[in-house]
Design a protein around this nucleic acid. Sequence first.
DNA 1: GCGCTTTTCTAAATATCATTAGGATATGGC
DNA 2: GCCATATCCTAATGATATTTAGAAAAGCGC
Lengths: 196, 196
Amino acid sequence: MMFKTPKESTKNRIIEAAKKLFADQGYQKATVVDISKQAGLSEAALYEYFQGKEDLLLTIPDLWVSDLISDLERQLFGIKGAVNKLRKYLWWYFRRVEETPLDAKIVYLFLKTNANFMATDVYSNVKLLYSCLLDIFEEGVKSGEMRPDLNPRIARNIFIGTMEHIITLWLLRDQAYSLFDNLDETFDILVRAFVK
Amino acid sequence: MMFKTPKESTKNRIIEAAKKLFADQGYQKATVVDISKQAGLSEAALYEYFQGKEDLLLTIPDLWVSDLISDLERQLFGIKGAVNKLRKYLWWYFRRVEETPLDAKIVYLFLKTNANFMATDVYSNVKLLYSCLLDIFEEGVKSGEMRPDLNPRIARNIFIGTMEHIITLWLLRDQAYSLFDNLDETFDILVRAFVK
DNA sequence: GCGCTTTTCTAAATATCATTAGGATATGGC
DNA sequence: GCCATATCCTAATGATATTTAGAAAAGCGC
């Protein structure tokens, strides 16, 4: 990645350091001193780039989810059929999680903790990421590919719940296996619940 | 509830205070001073009862989950058929969550954050709570009530994932509605994925 | 009631860490 | 070279978790 200004580059160094330390030791145990040191500057300098520790934490998911959002549409582009889109969504998302496990860990393990997470920008982006699933289910019902009596909102809850659970387990178990183990089988079972 | 010793009663007062403050303001923002004050003693006295703030936090889910465990077997006793047991499990669990939302909030929003959650007693109790579901799915497959090719472990992931997602949403949205809204419909969709 | 022990508590000290203040140093335009 | 600005550092400050030292209170055998 290239950075226009040296400021951008420093900011990025801080983010990378924070990502590593937060994911490794958790939000509380990772100190601002540690993060600054890892990034190669003093604590005070860090406050030129971020309002505080919490701001730094929230910046990480914000970037990650924004990046996902901008990629999502391109990934689903040209795919025909709700089930095919669903499948693509799942495989794409899991791949992204496997590629950037530190970000995923912060999102899944440390974000909801935050008292006012619901008020953050991250949350509205997550909603965007998930609202796409709602569209897919609505399309599936409308086109007749899925059961006419399927409540898209409930279907989405089941789908997201399953995804998040699989990811959380994987993160808590230190990514000791592949997220794609049994994924075909899981997907087939889920689809069975949605289609006629 | 009755307490044998005054020590038990004080300990309980501290736990109740902590529960309220943790659930309200989050782990970090709830200070030890606040908790002690709410419980009617000085900070130092609290350390006679708990090793520290983190110990206090972990005690809350520990009690809650232990209590659930001891209730679970009684609840499922006498129920015939895997699907019926599954249904009972879901309704029972959601009822318990609605009855004790503060505990649920701490378990679902603050526990996984804890870096070494996997090493705690709570975690092994949670596993116990969930292993029961595995038994139910295995029974369902064996008895022919569910598909012979159903992988019980995957079925459990889907079931738990859905449950946890519904609960987490409800907690993040300040319990503004009933957990039982749409529960019948959700359950039916899930069952469709598992049975022939 | 009276010593004695144990439990329960407090006020004050200590330690850790996020955050800020104020000043130093580097960088780029002239 | 010199000013302006951006970037950084050392050294406080303040909040808060935890410990210490020991006082008050409660139980108890006599």
